[in-house]
Amino acid sequence: MDRHGAKDIERLSGARLTSEAKAALLAEQTECTFCFLDEDGGPAAVVLSFAVDDDRFWITSVQGRVQVRGVERDPRVSIVVSGTGTGSQGRQMLSITGTAEIHRDISGLGDRLDLLAARLAPDHPERFIALLTSPGRLLIEVTPTSTVASHDSRRLAGDGRGGPARVAQNEEDRS
């Protein structure tokens, strides 16, 4: 049986992220594309840092920013995470839709601030927490509702670029 992508890359259903690869991507990547609706109801997006805890995305922002105004108008959002810039081989991507909630009073969310600080400023988390507790600072919590798409080129022959076939990475790849 041919491996996915050996002759073409039209059928990519076999190149979705496994749950292990998804967890690895979310653990390694610290930036996402955060998509929301602008004031005219059109698509808009910004790149933001994030952390994931208990399957929820946590993003820090400031009152009045375009993404905050977008969530205030409509809490339906999308988040796209790619493996670009990580040490991972191949190309990985995860796109989810979700519902965003703005937390303006972050005094009770110290554990989330600690999570963000440890992830985004591991050398000096206390300095980052001081920045995160500034006036106007808030947290956006995104609860995923569905996975739109995912991709892992390592599950394709030749990494999906027509190169030589690579050895399967796990038993699931051999089936």
Rank of each mutant, 00 (worst) to 15 (best):
R11F: 02
R11A: 07
L12G: 04
L12A: 11
R16N: 08
R16M: 09
R16C: 06
L17D: 01
L17F: 08
L17G: 04
S19P: 12
S19V: 15
E20Y: 10
K22P: 01
A24V: 09
L26D: 03
T30P: 00
E31W: 07
E31G: 01
C32I: 05
T33D: 03
F34T: 04
C35P: 00
C35M: 11
E39A: 15
G42V: 06
P43N: 13
V47S: 12
S49Y: 03
S49E: 08
D53H: 14
D53E: 12
F57M: 04
I59E: 00
S61C: 09
S61W: 06
V62S: 06
G64L: 09
G64W: 01
R65V: 00
G70Y: 02
E72A: 14
R73P: 01
R76G: 05
I79Y: 00
I79Q: 00
I79E: 00
V81P: 01
S82G: 14
G83R: 02
G83T: 10
T84A: 10
R91D: 05
M93K: 13
L94N: 03
T97M: 12
T99C: 13
A100C: 14
R104Q: 04
D105E: 14
L109W: 10
G110P: 02
D111M: 06
L115S: 05
P122Q: 06
D123I: 02
E126T: 09
R127Y: 07
I129F: 03
L131M: 10
L132F: 06
L132C: 02
T133A: 03
P135M: 10
P135A: 04
G136H: 12
G136Y: 10
R137M: 06
L138R: 12
I140D: 00
S146D: 15
A149K: 11
S150M: 02
S153C: 13
R154D: 07
L156W: 02
L156A: 05
G158R: 10
P164W: 05
A165P: 06
A165H: 13
A168F: 05
A168H: 03
Q169E: 08
N170T: 11
D173W: 14
R174V: 08
S175G: 12
